[in-house]
Amino acid sequence: MIVTIVRKELNMLFTSPLAWILLALIQLILTWAFLGRLDAFLEIQAQLLQIENPPGVTETIISPVFAMAAIVFLMITPLLSMRLLAEERRNHTLTLLMSAPISMTDIIVGKFLGLMIFFAMVIALIVALCMSLLLGGAIDFGLLLSNTMGLLLVAACFSALGLYISSLTAQPVIAAIGALGVLLGLWIIDLAAGETNHWLHFISLLKHFENFNQGLIDTSSIAYFILFMTTFLILTIHRLDGERLHG
């Protein structure tokens, strides 16, 4: 049953121009950043060779591109997640799903997975972009893997949060603005913390992604991402169940 919902979500996503425009824009921005970093790397390559244990091409090009991709994802997730439930409610199509023999969990997880498949495609394109460096030399696959994993997890967190906020309203635009506000807040919350070990650092999604960005696959970061994601998915299911109970 989840597959039916996933198929429908992807179908709806790709029949609208939004998905295609976003795919093109993301690719354009990231390729631009990629080429900029590549240019800079080629300029300083001679100097880099003189230092002992110099940073490789993966560290100087790929990591910054992934860091940038995370910020781009933060900006576009609200656009993609806003319609997931708010629009169903606005068009009265939620009734169709609710009266069908399908559980609330299936509906929410299906919608979430649909969005994740879209993000997986974007990430695959970014990885392909980075693979093009193989034409000129070797890259550090470990670092590429940790970056890919981090980006996928962070996108999952954004999507779950966006889905929850979309369940709160019948206005897609309000869902988008709400999700963007909360995501930005979670992104920069660690700026408010002075000391390095302040608890606010632990809440910030940015801080956790930084670990992956530097090639560190930290179990506590993975745990945080997974907890964050499941919490918001469960909250969404509760929210819709509550609607059935309270009217």
Partner: peptide
């Protein structure tokens, strides 16, 4: 619910789908 068919007051239609796509989705659902 598998034994139930429901048409609410406002028909629950996805405006961006074709009739066939929509009905196939309803059938799979």
């Amino acid at each position: 619910k598998a034994h139930l068919g429901f048409l609410p007051e406002i028909p629950p239609l996805y405006q961006d789908m074709t009739v066939d796509e929509f009905l196939l989705f309803a059938a799979r659902l």
